Deep mutational scan, measured.
Amino acid sequence: CHSECLGNCSQPDDPTKCVACRNFYLDGRCVETCPPPYYHFQDWRCVNFSFCQDLHHKCKNSRRQGCHQYVIHNNKCIPECPSGYTMNSSNLLCTPCLGPCPKVCHLLEGEKTIDSVTSAQELRGCTVINGSLIINIRGGNNLAAELEANLGLIEEISGYLKIRRSYALVSLSFFRKLRLIRGETLEIGNYSFYALDNQNLRQLWDWSKHNLTITQGKLFFHYNPKLCLSEIHKMEEVSGTKGRQERNDIALKTNGDQASCENELLKFSYIRTSFDKILLRWEPYWPPDFRDLLGFMLFYKEAPYQNVTEFDGQDACGSNSWTVVDIDPPLRSNDPKSQNHPGWLMRGLKPWTQYAIFVKTLVTFSDERRTYGAKSDIIYVQTDATNPSVPLDPISVSNSSSQIILKWKPPSDPNGNITHYLVFWERQAEDSELFELDYCLKGLKLPSRTWSPPFESEDSQKHNQSEYEDSAGECCSCPKTDSQILKELEESSFRKTFEDYLHNVVFVPRKT
């Protein structure tokens, strides 16, 4: 048989008469490798580009789960590009990614509803959504962080984005990388972005840091009482949809009607710091009717980097990364020049730590249904340095008659930039024990000054392991946590139920 035959053949030295091919099969003959313009397919066939392209389009058009959109890589027609490569849609070739590779997620039936953290986790790592997304989240724990972890990498949506009755959302900033909504599939009414009845939605994105392009379709905003109209108009300008909307697409009466839409800028007039305090004062603000001013709200939190936005980490279910302080308005003076500047002394802060701070007014709604208010920009203030805590785990070892090696770990709280350490030492008198000992005694162990690591005695271990207080009263049991108490109650309830079950099964009433 021919060298490319495997198993047997019907005619000697003829690659077209093989029972099976050793390498690849091409047009009725066995070959060692697939010549151009053919590609290896499933490690035994040679196919042309049209064959591989037909497989790709067949799966793409069917949208069946589990099928493969075949691509070409290293002269092979394979189910998908290997790690580190992405497909070129024009020629199906796998090309190296520039940075992290995109991950295209194809949605069944063309859309997916995100109504819980669990459903959001199914899209973790996706960068391109081939379909439409509907966000409908009523509640949950730590929602802002969970949504950002699972949806934060999405850069492109081919269909539309719909935010509907998501009472738990305060902001859409968890879509931190969303840059493009194509609108290839539109919501009824030709809408590519749809926001309806979101009672706590206050911000779409921080438009000073976020760009969003909507290729096709219109915007729809109705019944978002805490979303200011200025935020919607800003989205029109940034996304390129200005002029597409009709009169009733953006409701003037049901958007922002319960919001404090600040239209003035508060400026800080005085800032002073110490290692654990920050004193702030800002310019006074009074609405047209000074009785509408209820006070100020001061927001602050630790910020290692200057990239904080107002609604980071917030949701309507209680999660809030900001510390909020309510401040009463100052006494009002008739003389504008003698107006008191409101302020606040922030206490209990960490030394040498940068804080993000902003302040906003708290006002009631005027009778004319106009909203007044003022808010400052987010500023960054760093507390002063102070003395560091003591170095940890000092170790001293003498390696000769004239040297001592000293080692330690950095302090747990540096409280500033540590530039150097101060080492103090003092000579001590020799131990009298060394002169009084009889060095001729056998088995004498000389006193040693070398360091030995501390260890816990058996008594201390027994005390720590004991669940009861000892007789001397030195140790006591740790208080039980809520989960331990709940577990004990469940076990007790189970024992009672099981005992009742045994009584009912074992003891049967005697027939009379």
Results as ranks from 00 to 15, higher is better:
Lys103His: 08
Lys103Ile: 07
Lys103Thr: 09
Cys105Thr: 00
Glu109Leu: 07
Glu109Pro: 15
Thr113Met: 12
Thr113Tyr: 13
Asp115Met: 07
Asp115Asn: 08
Ser116Phe: 14
Val117Thr: 01
Thr118Arg: 10
Thr118Gly: 04
Thr118Glu: 08
Ser119Pro: 05
Ala120Trp: 07
Ala120His: 09
Ala120Ser: 09
Gln121Arg: 14
Gln121Pro: 06
Leu123Asp: 00
Cys126Phe: 01
Thr127Leu: 10
Val128Leu: 12
Ile129Leu: 11
Gly131Asp: 01
Ser132Pro: 01
Ser132Val: 02
Ile134His: 08
Ile134Cys: 14
Asn136Leu: 15
Asn136Met: 05
Ile137Ala: 07
Gly139Val: 14
Asn141Tyr: 12
Asn141Gln: 06
Asn141Trp: 08
Asn142Leu: 05
Leu143Ala: 03
Ala145Ser: 08
Glu146His: 15
Glu146Trp: 11
Glu146Gln: 05
Leu147Arg: 00
Leu147Ser: 02
Glu148Pro: 13
Glu148Cys: 03
Ala149Leu: 09
Ala149Lys: 11
Leu151Asn: 00
Gly152Gln: 04
Leu153Asp: 06
Glu155Leu: 09
Glu155Met: 05
Glu156Ala: 14
Ile157Ser: 00
Ser158Tyr: 09
Ser158Asn: 05
Leu161Asp: 00
Leu161Met: 06
Leu161Asn: 00
Lys162Met: 07
Ile163Arg: 00
Ile163Tyr: 00
Arg164Pro: 07
Ser166Arg: 00
Ser166Val: 07
Ser166Asp: 14
Tyr167Asn: 11
Tyr167Arg: 07
Leu169Pro: 09
Val170Met: 04
Ser171Met: 03
Leu172Tyr: 02
Leu172Thr: 09
Ser173Trp: 11
Ser173Thr: 07
Ser173Gln: 08
Ser173Met: 12
Phe174Pro: 05
Phe175Cys: 02
Phe175Arg: 00
Phe175Ala: 09
Arg176Thr: 15
Lys177Arg: 12
Leu178Val: 05
Arg179Cys: 13
Leu180Met: 11
Arg182Ser: 13
Thr185Gln: 10
Leu186His: 09
Leu186Lys: 07
Leu186Ser: 12
Leu186Asn: 04
Glu187Lys: 08
Gly189Tyr: 15
Gly189Arg: 08
Tyr191Ala: 07
Ser192Cys: 03
Ser192Tyr: 01
Phe193His: 01
Phe193Gly: 01
Tyr194Thr: 11
Ala195Gln: 03
Ala195Lys: 00
Ala195Thr: 05
Asn198Cys: 00
Asn198Lys: 00
Gln199Asn: 11
Leu201Asn: 00
Leu201Cys: 05
Leu201Gly: 00
Arg202Tyr: 15
Gln203Val: 05
Leu204Asp: 00
Asp206Ala: 14
Asp206Lys: 14
Asp206Asn: 08
Asp206His: 03
Trp207Thr: 10
Trp207Ser: 05
Lys209Glu: 13
Lys209Leu: 08
His210Ala: 08
Asn211Asp: 08
Asn211Pro: 05
Leu212Arg: 00
Leu212His: 01
Leu212Trp: 01
Leu212Ile: 11
Ile214Met: 06
Ile214Cys: 03
Gln216Met: 07
Gln216Ile: 05
Gln216Thr: 11
Gly217Gln: 05
Gly217Met: 01
Lys218Ser: 01
Lys218Cys: 01
Lys218Pro: 10
Phe220Trp: 04
Phe221Ile: 15
Phe221Val: 10
Phe221Ser: 07
Phe221Asn: 01
His222Trp: 06
His222Leu: 15
Tyr223Thr: 13
Asn224Trp: 01
Asn224Thr: 05
Pro225Arg: 04
Lys226Arg: 10
Lys226Gln: 10
Leu227Val: 03
Leu227Gly: 00
Cys228Arg: 15
Cys228Tyr: 03
Cys228Ile: 01
Leu229Arg: 08
Leu229Ser: 04
Ser230Leu: 05
Glu231Phe: 12
Glu231Gly: 15
His233Gln: 10
Lys234Asn: 13
Lys234Ser: 07
Glu236Leu: 02
Glu237Ser: 07
Glu237Asp: 08
Val238Asn: 15
Val238Gln: 13
Ser239Ala: 10
Gly240Arg: 13
Thr241Phe: 11
Thr241Met: 14
Lys242Asn: 11
Gly243Trp: 07
Gly243Glu: 13
Gly243Ser: 07
Arg244Leu: 11
Arg244Asp: 10
Gln245Ile: 13
Gln245Ala: 11
Gln245Trp: 09
Glu246Arg: 08
Glu246Leu: 09
Arg247Ile: 12
Asn248Ile: 09
Asn248Cys: 15
Asn248Gly: 10
Asp249Ile: 14
Leu252Thr: 07
Leu252Lys: 07
Asn255Cys: 14
Gly256Glu: 11
Gln258Pro: 13
Ala259Trp: 12
Ala259Leu: 11
Ala259Ile: 13
Ser260Ala: 12
Cys261Glu: 03
Cys261Ala: 07
Glu264Pro: 14
Glu264Gln: 07
Leu266Pro: 01
Lys267Ser: 07
Phe268Met: 06
Ser269Lys: 12
Ile271Lys: 15
Ser274Phe: 12
Ser274Trp: 03
Phe275Arg: 15
Leu279Lys: 08
Leu280Asn: 01
Arg281Phe: 07
Arg281Thr: 07
Trp282Arg: 00
Trp282Lys: 00
Glu283Thr: 11
Tyr285Ser: 07
Pro287Ile: 07
Pro288Phe: 08
Arg291Leu: 09
Asp292Arg: 12
Asp292Lys: 04
Leu293Pro: 06
Leu294Ser: 11
Leu294Met: 15
Gly295Thr: 04
Gly295Asn: 02
Phe296Asn: 15
Met297Arg: 00
Leu298Lys: 00
Leu298Trp: 01
Leu298Phe: 14
Leu298Tyr: 01
Leu298Glu: 00
Phe299Ser: 02
Tyr300Ile: 07
Tyr300Phe: 09
Tyr300Met: 10
Lys301Gly: 03
Tyr305Asn: 00
Tyr305Ala: 11
Asn307Gln: 11
Val308Ser: 11
Val308Asn: 04
Thr309Val: 11
Phe311Tyr: 14
Phe311Asn: 10
Phe311Arg: 13
Gly313Lys: 15
Gly313Trp: 15
Ala316Pro: 13
Ala316Thr: 09
Gly318Gln: 09
Ser319Pro: 07
Thr323Gln: 15
Thr323Phe: 10
Thr323Lys: 11
Val325Ala: 15
Val325Pro: 00
Val325Arg: 05
Ile327Asp: 01
Pro330Arg: 15
Leu331Ser: 09
Leu331Ile: 08
Leu331Pro: 02
Ser333Met: 13
Asn334Gly: 05
Asp335Pro: 03
Pro336Tyr: 00
Lys337Thr: 04
Ser338Asn: 09
Ser338Phe: 05
Gln339Asp: 03
Gln339Ser: 04
His341Ser: 09
Pro342Tyr: 12
Pro342Ala: 12
Pro342Gly: 15
Gly343Ser: 03
Leu345Phe: 13
Arg347Tyr: 10
Arg347Gln: 09
Leu349Gln: 01
Pro351Thr: 07
Pro351Cys: 07
Pro351Asp: 02
Trp352Tyr: 13
Thr353Met: 03
Thr353Tyr: 08
Tyr355Met: 01
Tyr355Glu: 00
Val359Gln: 00
Val359Ser: 02
Lys360Asn: 07
Thr361Val: 14
Leu362Ile: 15
Leu362Arg: 02
Leu362Ala: 12
Val363Thr: 10
Phe365Gly: 15
Phe365Leu: 08
Phe365Arg: 08
Phe365Gln: 03
Ser366Pro: 14
Ser366His: 15
Asp367Ser: 09
Asp367Pro: 05
Arg369Trp: 07
Arg370Pro: 10
Thr371Leu: 11
Thr371Pro: 12
Thr371Gln: 15
Tyr372Arg: 01
Tyr372Pro: 13
Tyr372Ala: 02
Ala374Gln: 15
Ala374Thr: 07
Ala374Phe: 09
Ala374Ser: 12
Ala374Arg: 08
Lys375Tyr: 07
Ser376Asp: 00
Ile378Tyr: 02
Tyr380Pro: 00
Tyr380Ser: 04
Tyr380Phe: 09
Val381Ile: 12
Val381Ala: 08
Val381Thr: 14
Gln382Cys: 04
Gln382Asp: 04
Gln382Ile: 02
Thr383Gly: 00
Thr383His: 00
Thr383Ser: 05
Thr383Glu: 00
Thr383Asn: 00
Asp384Leu: 15
Asp384Val: 15
Asp384Gly: 12
Ala385Pro: 12
Ala385Glu: 15
Thr386Tyr: 13
Ser389Asn: 14
Val390Gly: 02
Val390Ile: 06
Pro391Glu: 00
Pro391Ile: 05
Pro394Trp: 13
Pro394Cys: 15
Ile395Lys: 10
Ile395Ser: 10
Ile395Ala: 08
Ser396Pro: 14
Ser396Leu: 14
Val397Thr: 05
Val397Ser: 08
Val397Tyr: 09
Ser398Tyr: 12
Ser398Gly: 10
Asn399Ile: 08
Asn399His: 12
Asn399Ser: 12
Asn399Ala: 10
Ser401Gln: 10
Ser401Arg: 06
Ser402Asp: 09
Ile404Ser: 04
Ile404Tyr: 01
Lys407Ser: 11
Trp408His: 00
Lys409Ala: 15
